[in-house]
Every structure is written in structure tokens, then in C-alpha cells.
Computed example of a mutant assay.
Amino acid sequence: MARRTGRRPGNPDTREAILTSARDAFAERGIDGASIRTIAAGAGVDPALVHHYFGTKDKLFLAVMNVPFDPSELLPQIVAGGSDGIGERLVRTFLRIWDSPAGAAGVALLRSVISNEWAARLMRDFVVTQILRRVVAGLDLSPAEAPLRTSLVASQLVGLAMARYLLRIEPLAHTPAEIAVAAIAPTVQRYLTGELTGVFEPATDVEQATGAQPPTGVEPATGVV
């Protein structure tokens, strides 16, 4: 009997094959460059089957990353209140997730980022496209300043996760969440909306009149515009 060709049937291995293909595609091309069609071809399935298992490309990316939360659900609630208090809302939500049982997945993710290059690339793309880009879209930030401001926020939150949950540096590891929020939120707020003396050059009268953006001396982060 001739062997049948075509897409794979829906069996227990299909989902893992899609995840493996997606992991390679996202690590190589980033979430913006990878397509559902390419991922499906790598898994040997029809693109419709990828949508059947995972829905959108963003959902597939979250499944690959094994992230314990969905930024598309949380971040709109955080930015809905506007710029005032955004630092406190960000840090409080961050700690609530990491202090919950779901935080174990986050710790495992941090460990993989440290030891694996493709995991680091995936994490970078996740932070840029799924978090920073959504924060920029939800707040009225200067396009010239937004990339660096949001990158500074990322440095604060990633550093907090490393110190509190992975390295478990005391007393931060067991500091009550409200105290951590009180200590860290003002810095996050300043990074997003405060005066960063010596970081951004003030616009000249000509630039203010024409709308041109002054150079900042910092290359914008890819995709965070």
C-alpha cells in the first residue's frame, strides 16, 4: 500500500511538533518575522491546524515561552488609568504574578534565559513585542523617548525578578509585596514619565516648531515604536 502524504493528522505529537517549529522560527526570525505558514511548514501540518491548537501567533508565542500570564489581558488594565500611578500598577501586578504559584514558571524561564542563547533571544523578543510595545501604545510617550524609557523599565523589572525570585537575595526575597512596591514603583514611574536629567536633549525652538525630534544618542529598540 502506498504511503499517504499530506499534513499530519491531529495526534498527540502534532502540538509538540508545532511548538518545536515555532520555537525555532521565533528564535531565528523573531515574532514579527515568523509566519504561521512557515511554522506550519516546519511542523509538517496545515496552517489551519496551528490556528486550531493555538489561535493567534501571539498565543502561540506565549505557549512557546511558557509565560505564566498573558500581557494582552493584563497590560490594558494597567495602562487604562493613564500615566499617573502607572509605575505602582506595573510593579504591584508584576509582584502579584511572581508571588503566585504561576511564578514557578517564570523562575524556570529565567534559568533557561541564563543558560540558553535561543531562550535569551525569545525572552528579548517577548519583552519588546508583548510588553514594551503595548505600554508605548497605551501611554502618551514621546516617540523619541519611548524606546529608552521602556527599556529602563524592563531593566528594573527583570532585575527585580532575578534578585527576588532566582538569586533570592535577602532581605528583598522575603520583603512584603507592599513594601517592595513602595520602594520600586517611584523609580519605574520616573523612568516612564519623570525628568531624566542629562538623558534627553531639550528640543530647540526650530524643532518644536517643525515637529522634528532631537537626537538622543541612543538607538531606539527594534519594534518599540
Results as ranks from 00 to 15, higher is better:
143 P>K: 13
6 G>K: 13
75 L>W: 08
122 L>Q: 08
143 P>A: 05
33 G>W: 07
107 V>M: 10
88 E>S: 04
32 D>P: 02
124 R>P: 02
165 Y>M: 11
40 A>Y: 14
215 P>H: 10
49 L>S: 04
195 E>C: 03
157 L>I: 13
159 G>P: 09
121 R>H: 07
202 P>K: 03
21 S>W: 11
56 T>G: 08
33 G>Q: 11
216 T>L: 00
84 D>C: 01
222 T>M: 04
143 P>N: 07
30 G>W: 13
128 V>W: 08
79 V>Q: 03
23 R>C: 02
187 T>V: 05
45 V>H: 01
162 M>L: 13
127 V>G: 04
137 A>V: 03
72 S>E: 09
156 Q>F: 10
117 E>C: 11
49 L>C: 04
117 E>W: 02
179 I>K: 15
156 Q>E: 14
138 G>M: 08
51 H>W: 07
61 F>H: 13
71 P>L: 09
23 R>W: 10
69 F>L: 06
34 A>W: 00
87 G>C: 00
23 R>M: 09
209 A>Y: 12
42 G>K: 15
210 T>K: 12
144 A>W: 01
172 L>M: 14
166 L>V: 14
14 T>K: 01
97 I>Y: 03
31 I>P: 13
224 V>Q: 00
85 G>A: 01
13 D>S: 01
42 G>T: 10
73 E>L: 02
41 A>R: 13
34 A>N: 02
71 P>Y: 00
101 P>S: 02
116 N>W: 05
7 R>K: 06
82 G>F: 05
119 A>P: 08
196 L>R: 02
204 T>S: 15
195 E>Q: 01
55 G>V: 12
88 E>V: 03
156 Q>V: 15
195 E>H: 08
151 S>V: 09
151 S>R: 14
210 T>V: 11
56 T>K: 00
147 P>M: 06
213 Q>R: 02
223 G>H: 09
155 S>I: 07
18 I>L: 05
19 L>G: 12
3 R>D: 04
200 F>C: 09
111 R>H: 01
60 L>M: 15
40 A>P: 04
137 A>F: 12
98 W>V: 11
225 V>G: 14
100 S>K: 05
100 S>L: 09
5 T>L: 15
41 A>F: 03
214 P>I: 02
110 L>P: 11
168 R>M: 12
4 R>Y: 07
30 G>K: 10
167 L>W: 07
178 E>D: 15
200 F>T: 11
143 P>V: 12
185 A>E: 05
133 R>W: 06
28 E>R: 15
183 A>R: 03
116 N>A: 09
203 A>E: 00
196 L>A: 12
217 G>M: 02
7 R>L: 15
78 I>V: 13
116 N>V: 02
92 R>P: 03
197 T>K: 06
125 D>E: 07
223 G>F: 08
30 G>V: 07
217 G>A: 07
34 A>M: 04
47 P>W: 10
4 R>S: 01
158 V>C: 14
17 A>I: 00
134 R>V: 00
224 V>D: 00
225 V>F: 07
96 R>V: 13
167 L>K: 12
